[in-house]
Simulated assay, not measured.
Amino acid sequence: MYYAILAYHAEGIVESWSKEEDEALMTELLRINDRLVREKSLGPAARLGPTQKAVTLRGAGDGMVIDGPFAETKEQLLGFYVVDFPDIEGAIAAARELRRANPTAVYEIRPVLLYLPGASLETGGQG
């Protein structure tokens, strides 16, 4: 089954890290990434750019592009991992390892329901 591990953090804190602090964190996260790849448990993963450079499409018809996102929260979605484990316990274990590397981040683990016309929404991965 596929799971999304969504990484949230206060963007201002992340932006305050020195180049050396950021590189040290990325080295540790890439170590975890490489292990998950070797175990064939990691799919797409991305570090998202700053929300100040993001836009939001909303409204009727073709929608309107506006600055954003605008959310009443102290934490922003700064990245994600798609992992493949037989059950959510494997995804939780991976998120715990990521949290040990970045203890000030918050991780949300959510099942990914693939949309394939005619297929069950439970289709995916090993599960």
Results as ranks from 00 to 15, higher is better:
Y107L: 13
I66Y: 08
V112T: 01
I13M: 12
P103R: 06
S120G: 05
A93I: 04
G59Q: 11
I5C: 05
E28G: 13
G90S: 07
L25C: 08
V106Y: 04
P103H: 05
G59C: 11
E89G: 09
K19G: 04
G12N: 14
E75Q: 13
L121V: 00
G90A: 07
R99L: 15
R100H: 01
D62G: 15
T27P: 00
R38W: 03
G79C: 08
E72C: 01
L6R: 11
M26S: 10
T56C: 13
E23T: 12
S41F: 07
R35Q: 07
R47K: 15
G61F: 02
G124E: 05
D67C: 03
E75Y: 12
G63Q: 01
L48Q: 00
L78Q: 06
G43N: 14
I32T: 14
S120P: 02
A101G: 10
A45G: 03
E20G: 11
V37W: 02
R38Q: 15
L116G: 02
L57E: 04
S18G: 09
L121E: 06
S16R: 12
D34C: 03
A95G: 03
E39M: 09
A105R: 10
P117I: 00
N33D: 15
K74A: 12
A60D: 06
Q76Y: 02
A24M: 11
M64N: 11
G127Q: 03
E20I: 10
P69M: 06
R110P: 09
R100G: 01
I66S: 15
P44T: 04
V55H: 10
L6H: 01
D67H: 13
A91W: 09
E39W: 02
R31E: 13
G124N: 09
L6G: 04
